[in-house]
Design a protein around this nucleic acid. Structure first.
Length: 575
RNA sequence: UGCCCCGUAGUGCAAUGGCAGCACACGGGACUUUGAAUCCCGGCAUCCAGGUUCGAAUCCUGGCGGGGCAACCA
């Protein structure tokens, strides 16, 4: 894998170090931690991973690899009401697919429920935590506001003995959900809300995906997080910006529990990734899935890792994207175009070229003998000679793209029009002699052409130039395919920017999916393996759908279009 | 309103007291058997005001602007 300072431009100056790299390097220099660095990626298994997680994954695994350390995968499963084993599986699959291997087994915060509980008891014994009988509403009322201090809970000064007794009975299941909590005794007047006696344990009679019914009280994320890191010997706990204000609480907890410095991870926060034309919050993604606005977590229009994979995005492109966006502490939104550029760059290098006609129009070469066939050798990838070539059958009747013919050629039109000559990619020059049209719609139904026999392979001895080259498929040999054209799920860069009274579904793009059947593909494409990626010449990059495609009956998803200069020209000319 | 974090081309990131640079995007051109790819050229930025300094994107102060924080979510 390319190192972080290795650009693609060759002479490009090395990228400056990120603030994360600087912190890690400073800690290595000062020997703050005895051994190699350890990071972790700690998802909550309550949804699928998305490209924002990919940024975090690349950061955590990348930093570990860069400095000779290791990275753990830990499920932050402290809330049994939202977490499921399905998500645990999906997360592992996605991290592996991205190309990373975690150190040792998958870890779970739920593995630490017992030591966590012991720590809670320790805090109670030290007079630093108490059982509070306030309801959630009352707790909120006592907490005060951003500008006014809170009021102490009436249960704040219970005796250690009583707290111990109550906590034990909470664990035994003697009390109903929500009736009591264990709270840290810190400072109800703190300007940091998270220090106003935060809840450490809540009663939840819920079945946990791993511990089953063993527990009926569960630690909050805040109580589990720092200690879980500490148990795993994490040196650098990298998380998103919103946890910055939680850091004093983690520090308080670790300090109160007497965790020594080298067992006390350094937390560093970075800005989460935002991408234009999509949503990244798990809550919103979950809504799209449950309200069936998309086909599932792996819908190719979603920014989920599973969706991107199904769309045909290679993991290398995602890693390169993560590298290029960098990392900082400013909340920012990356343009989708950058992701697309990374995808095109990778696929341009690696995807073999094939010809496919999405919206077929029949073309007949009238001076080509009936029944005669030709077999043309065409390179698989001009970017990679090692990709070899294939033989493509040619005949009197061909399918070409409807978009490649205009009855009336606009300015700068290089393609087919009455009287115009074009090159059939890898084949012959043909000239359009006449057009048959549907008498009702006026649409062309057949183009009647002649060819230049000397142009076989795509060039003529006289060196005559044609401006346009179009793709084609022999009608006699064509296979058929279903093709799904995807556009952005949302029609605007910022789906969250909606008129009053509307929600994020307001900007859902009605054209985000267009299904095409009866597309004509060259024979070599028919057996495409599910998941295989191709460039359809002049159209875009496509991936045989991993679920619905079968060899012989292929279904292709458009990953991304090719850059389309003509479309741009036409847009400009058209005003 | 309190506390915390953060302000560099359109977007994302560099420059760590010494010539403000890279990528994507955008505009133009060359080349082309993909209007692809490739190559060349171009325009566009330090939030504002003071201060320190020979010199400030960088340090200090104040403003302005953005984000986060008041789940028994993570």
């Amino acid at each position: 894998m390319a190192g972080p300072t290795e650009g693609t431009g060759g002479s490009a100056p090395p990228r400056g170090k990120s603030f994360l790299e600087e912190i890690v390097e400073a800690d290595r220099e000062s020997a703050r931690f005895p051994g190699p660095i350890r990071t972790r990626f700690p998802p909550e298994p309550n949804g699928y991973l998305h490209i924002g997680h990919a940024k975090s994954i690349c950061l955590n695994f990348g930093l570990a690899a860069q400095y000779g350390g290791t990275c753990n995968l830990r499920m932050d499963d402290t809330n049994p009401t939202t977490e499921e084993a399905e998500y645990v599986e999906a997360i592992q699959r996605d991290v592996r697919w991205l190309g990373f291997q975690w150190d040792g087994p998958v870890r779970y915060a739920s593995d630490y429920f017992e030591p966590l509980y012991a720590w809670a008891v320790e805090l109670v014994r030290a007079g630093k935590a108490y059982v509070c009988d306030l309801t959630a509403d009352q707790v909120e009322a006592h907490r005060g506001t951003l500008t006014t201090p809170g009021k102490p809970s009436p249960w704040r000064d219970r005796s250690v003995a009583e707290n111990l007794d109550l906590l034990g009975r909470m664990r035994k299941g003697e009390f109903p959900d929500g009736s009591r909590t264990l709270r840290a005794k810190i400072d109800m007047a703190s300007p940091n809300m998270h220090l106003r006696d935060p809840v450490l344990y809540r009663i939840l009679h819920a079945r946990h995906h791993r511990t089953g019914d063993a527990w009926c009280l569960y630690p909050t994320y805040d109580f589990a997080h720092g200690q879980s890191d500490s148990i795993e010997g994490i040196t650098h706990s990298i998380c998103t910006l919103e946890f910055e204000v939680h850091r004093p609480l983690y520090d308080w907890l670790l300090d109160s529990l007497g965790v020594p410095l080298h067992g006390h991870p350094r937390q560093v926060e970075f800005a989460r990734l935002n991408l234009t034309h999509t949503v990244m919050s798990k809550r919103l993604l979950l809504r799209l899935v449950t309200e069936k606005l998309v086909s599932g977590w792996d819908d190719p229009r979603l920014p989920t890792i599973a969706g991107l994979r199904r769309r045909g995005v290679p993991p290398e492109a995602i890693r390169e994207f993560a590298r290029r966006i960098g990392v900082a502490k400013v909340e920012s939104t990356v343009e989708l175009a950058l992701l697309e550029a990374c995808i095109r760059e990778e696929l341009n290098r690696t995807a073999e070229r094939r010809m496919a006609v999405l919206r077929p129009l029949r073309l007949v070469i009238e001076d080509w003998p009936e029944g005669r066939e030709d077999l043309l050798e065409i390179g698989n990838n001009p970017e990679d000679p090692a990709a070899g070539s294939r033989k493509v059958p040619f005949g009197r009747e061909l399918w070409i793209e409807r978009d490649d013919f205009r009855a009336e050629a606009p300015k700068k039109w290089f393609r087919l029009a009455p009287g115009a000559e074009v090159r059939l990619r890898g084949g012959y020059y043909v000239r359009c002699r006449s057009v048959e049209t549907d008498s009702r719609t006026g649409e062309p139904t057949r183009l009647l052409c002649t060819h230049d026999p000397a142009s076989r392979g795509g060039s003529t001895p006289d060196g005559r130039k044609v401006k346009g080259t179009i793709h084609w498929v022999s009608a006699a040999h064509a296979a058929e395919a279903e093709v799904r054209l995807y556009e952005t799920l949302f029609a605007v860069p910022d789906p969250g920017d909606v008129p009053p009274g509307k929600d994020f579904t307001h900007h859902l793009n009605p054209r985000s999916l267009e299904g095409l059947r009866g597309c004509k593909i060259e024979p070599s494409l028919a057996p495409a393996a599910p998941g295989s990626r191709w460039q359809f010449e002049r159209i875009g990059y496509f991936c045989a759908d991993e679920k619905d495609s079968r060899p012989g009956a292929p279904v292709f998803n458009r990953t991304v279009t090719l850059r389309d200069t003509w479309a741009k020209i036409e847009r400009q000319e058209g005003g």
